[in-house]
Amino acid sequence: MLIRRAPRFTSNEITDRKVYLSRREWMIGAAALTLLPGECGAATPQGEPLGATRNDGLSLKEPPTKFEAATTYNNFYEFGVNKDDPARLAHTLKPRPWTVQVDGLVHKPKTFDVDELSRLFPLEERVYALRCVEGWSMVIPWIGFPLASLLKRVEPTGQAKYVEFTTLLDPKQFPGQRASLFGFALDWPYTEGLRLDEALHPLTLLTVGMYGQVLSNQNGAPIRVVVPWKYGFKSAKSIVRIRLTSNEPPTAWNKAAPREYGFYSNVNPAVDHPRWSQATERRIGEFRRRSTLPFNGYGDQVRHLYAGMDLKKYY
């Protein structure tokens, strides 16, 4: 069938997919895996069930996109520019062991083990809309904790105004970072950034799982940020460093094409990409285009962050 039916995927089903293992049991499982030789030694825990409490207040009431679509139709240039590259090459990434360095303008810089992070903060499940700058969208049940919780723990100094995220740089694990024939590459490592107030917003989620499972490699394992009111590329994946700065950090896509990808990149149907309209989007799994909503539907929660700003200028 050409037109995939909207999946009849209810919240019950999401919960059904979870086989609740205790954290301890699953840590032991992961540890056992690391002792196995060869490819298995990667101990890729993707696909492992991951428990979390559903945050209904911050969850969309729409059926999630099919898991298969969300894990095979991805933009993740570290693996390649085609939509199927991330799923095809995902096995090259080793998401454990993994640390995240949190530093810059903070009183208590610290490097966290990724598993320590998900033990420190209670995990929530939140169903968010994800709008890609290319004009398609999905609905994804993410699992994570507010970035604000982590930032508060490291205590930003008074000078901190921005947060910079850095994705892992390793051409061995990310084939897309190898030099290419025509010399094009984003300026690796991938960096993204938010204003501090955006980063502290309760919707901004540090994410370690989706669909009741540990985050799959092609979706940014082991840890990524999700900023639902901005175009997808703002939500940096496979993060190794979170740095607080006083100046607006340079960001990968903005450096590559400043006229096309602004620092803010809030979802905005009234501001077109220079080459295509942002007025509509195709929800993956649906046939007709739908109208794109300002701030991807999160206007009531985030509009105040941009009071008095000309959003055509700060696109």
Partner: peptide, 9 residues
């Protein structure tokens, strides 16, 4: 039914 997740595109 194998036209990727975004068949129209």
């Amino acid at each position: 039914d194998d036209l990727t997740a975004n068949p129209i595109s």
